[in-house]
């Protein structure tokens, strides 16, 4: 399926990025070009090949499930654009 303005609007909404109506056509064109270029991978037969999620040939190390960090609420909140009473604050989400 070709990427049109509606597709861009949809993925921009999924990505939580506001894209002005005036930019949709330009972005659709850029994305169409990039996607057409990456579609050359269809030339390769990958049947029976396992997808590679990590290049590291190792098993994930295990450690005891113990608290080893934390108790630094104020440090964490220090970077928040808005915080009060020891919490992050956001616009009202419950009516």
């Amino acid at each position: 399926m070709s990427i049109d303005k509606a597709t861009v609007a949809h993925i921009a909404a999924l990505a939580r990025i506001r894209v002005p109506e005036a930019d949709l056509e330009r972005l659709a064109g850029e994305l169409r070009k990039i996607v057409a270029w990456i579609e050359q991978l269809d030339e390769i037969d990958t049947s029976g090949v396992e997808p590679m999620a990590s290049v590291v040939e190792m098993t994930t190390p295990q450690r005891p499930d113990e608290v080893n960090d934390g108790d630094c609420r104020d440090k964490v909140l220090a970077n928040a654009p808005a915080a009060s009473h020891g919490f992050f604050t956001v616009p009202k989400v419950v009516e």
Partner: peptide, 25 residues
């Protein structure tokens, strides 16, 4: 946006998993 597109419903297998398979090769 490209990343969201290749991971979105209906395209994940065709793009993202395909790329991970080519990466293995």
């Amino acid at each position: 946006l490209v990343g969201t597109y290749v991971l979105s419903a209906g395209y994940y297998d065709a793009y993202y998993l395909k790329a991970q398979r080519v990466r293995a090769l």
